[in-house]
Design a binder for these strands. Structure first.
Lengths: 136, 136
DNA sequence: AAGTAATCTACTAAGCCGATAGGATAATGG
DNA sequence: CCATTATCCTATCGGCTTAGTAGATTACTT
């Protein structure tokens, strides 16, 4: 199950992508519109900013704005930042690989085999969807 | 990420499926072979028994055994029992559907759209794999 | 009856999740 | 240059879940 952080993050990105112009939008506006706790959303937007998806402007007329074209924002990258590994098992992950300490032989592990298949497929979907694809 | 419960559960089922005969196997044997805490595994096997996957026999010569042919055991069902919903969002789930209280309009929710696509694909994979498929 | 092994209940330590509070910092407008 | 605005950052919290423990009980076999 997706964490609320990820869900809210995707919603906020979508909200920004759907605006015609790319002028800064205040946290409060997004929070109000998407029914998200302001302070919680604040930490999410901060994370997205530090990860290079958003820009921020302080002071009057400030807020957050998309830094890249929604077409260039891969949902796989968004997912990894917000939620973490796409794989369901560390031993089936590319970016976050970790050996299971309970596994004698990875090659015969049925769980790994199945979860690798799931991972490959999920990754394909997330990579083939940009923010623009899901927003419009 | 998969919980250890699910991972251990799949490993235990695999262990049982790989045995030639279908005689009862003690918890301790599975735990030793798969490097799982006995007591934790105990609760998992109990769950699988109460869910109709395993049978149990008490006393000497007792243990757990598969109740059905591994070919007939769908990994989607196993997953749902051990891990819960396959969908990443409650609003994208068939068996555990729940409306998001932060969503005004489900049909325009980008997160839901994306996660539904992921769900459909994951489900297809889990349903097309039986315990026999992944064990051998 | 003795011994074996599953069953069941209850508990705990640790960690994470979602949310909140408060102040620091920076940019803008007048 | 001062007040306003809004992001930035740290710290904290209750509640829930996860992984694992302990101990008593029940049922089956020989």
């Amino acid at each position: 199950m997706l964490s609320k952080k990820t869900k809210y993050g995707i919603k906020a990105l979508t909200y920004l992508a759907r605006r015609e112009n790319n002028e800064p939008v205040q946290i409060a506006e997004i929070a109000r519109s998407e029914h998200i706790s302001i302070k919680f959303l604040e930490s999410i937007l901060l994370l997205l900013r530090n990860s290079g998806f958003l820009g921020a402007k302080k002071g009057k007329g400030g807020g957050y704005y998309l830094i890249k074209d929604p077409k260039e924002i891969s949902m796989a990258k968004v997912y990894r930042i917000l939620e973490g590994p796409i794989a369901l098992l560390p031993c089936a992950s590319h970016n976050f690989y970790e050996k299971c300490d309970d596994c004698d032989d990875e090659s015969t592990c049925a769980a790994r085999r199945l979860m690798t298949e799931v991972r490959d497929n999920t990754l394909k979907i997330l990579e083939s969807n940009s923010l623009a694809d899901i927003a419009f």
